[in-house]
Design a protein around this nucleic acid. Structure first.
Lengths: 225, 225
DNA sequence: TATGCAATGTGATGCATATCACAAAATATA
DNA sequence: TATATTTTGTGATATGCATCACATTGCATA
């Protein structure tokens, strides 16, 4: 299925800077797909020839670590996915999986490269993205390795509220096992800490429903463990 | 001090793709400096208006984590430094420090941007760099958080041999305290593990001199702890 | 050569958290 | 509705490593 990209309401800041001409080129060179929760978008170890545009929905980037799968980060639409793995290596170095129902557009790498070449502003925005991601990466890694579990879990809960769902009440998009992969812990610890936070009145947990009751406390925990 | 960049023998792959014109522009818009071991190149928290080209020498990228300083990665010349922090944020989000004597060129951000805009090949190479760095970041983070100390130390020792010094005998460029910051451990653990590896005949440690005696074993340790 | 400070070696102790082993819910499937 | 399967809760135990405390060595500076 192909759409007119000019009329697509889901543009990133970068995409909105494209020339009409490039948008047309995009329109005729992409494949649009509707995905369901759990569907694989990019699979580590397979060949990569496409850049993916996440039009709607929520996805997780995950990578096979030496011992277990690790969720590197959560990404919500609109956003480009797989740039590093597609540009940087012929074989995908990580996986991306839909965590909610989602719509994606597969864009041929060559086409994307051409568009990158021909649109300075777009190019600049994409580079900005890379820079921000790398900085985020550094910080995330430093936090993960230095903070204790409570701190990391608080971080994750705050991230969901502020960056992903933009609300202090939300439904965790996955199981505690996956949460553990995101925060580098064991499933059991996730369960325990969630219960602790609930008991302390910082959050209210109802199944996978999270309600942040005391954001200040949560931020404190994020900072001090 | 200014040099003719056209004649500079220390070019990255990207830089070698620049037009004569851009190289001239670079020549008249950069400041070359000789640095000594320990000198700061980029300082976290200060304003950033320059991209830095590491012409010769070895540098460490480090970041203030929530509790302690963490060495994110080691970089050797020739290489651009500070792109993410300069493009992605007005304030430096990490520090870079010379670990050996080094020569660097400070390039004005605007000039660098212009050159990026006007040289497709250069631009592509820089983007490739970003991609590779991000992938590396992912892997490094997964390794660091999942592997035990022996594994991480083995990794670091191998990295020095293969990527930094290109020799199985080398002088560690810093103290055990700094080594600990690179591998996310305590100074004491670095000392102990180094002694263990030595005792097991995997490496020979003489002060800061490292000699890898049994690379296969070291790789095994890196994989299995 | 003497003196001081930084870097290293090494044991003892404590703690955070993984792991194991289940039980109990919740959810999916027949 | 019954049955299987996944997800979650929770105690007991084990362990890798940080931390502390100090001895020792190496290196710099007077």
């Amino acid at each position: 299925m192909q759409n007119d990209c000019r009329k697509c309401p889901f543009k990133t800041k970068a995409t909105s800077m494209l020339s009409e001409c490039s948008l047309d080129q995009l329109s005729t060179n992409h494949l649009e797909l509707k995905l369901k929760k759990g569907d694989s978008i990019i699979k580590q170890g397979t060949y990569s020839t496409n850049v993916v545009f996440l039009r709607t929905g929520l996805a997780k980037i995950h990578i096979a670590g030496p011992y277990s799968e690790q969720i590197v980060k959560m990404v919500n639409a609109p956003s480009y996915l797989g740039l590093p793995t597609t540009f940087g290596s012929k074989i995908n170095q990580y996986s991306v999986t839909a965590v909610s129902d989602a719509e994606v557009c597969f864009i041929d790498l060559e086409v994307f490269q051409t568009i990158l070449d021909e649109n300075k502003e777009f190019n600049r925005e994409i580079i900005q993205e890379f820079c921000k991601n790398e900085l985020e990466s550094f910080h995330r890694c430093a936090n993960r390795t230095q903070k204790l579990i409570r701190g990391n879990m608080a971080d994750a809960l705050l991230d969901f509220a502020d960056k992903i769902f933009k609300s202090d009440t939300y439904l965790l998009p996955f199981s505690q096992t996956e949460f553990a992969n995101l925060v580098d812990t064991s499933r059991e610890s996730v369960s325990r800490v969630l219960a602790e936070f609930d008991k302390d009145g910082i959050i209210k947990v109802t199944g996978r429903q999270i309600e942040i009751l005391n954001k200040k406390s949560l931020i404190l925990v994020s900072q001090n463990g």
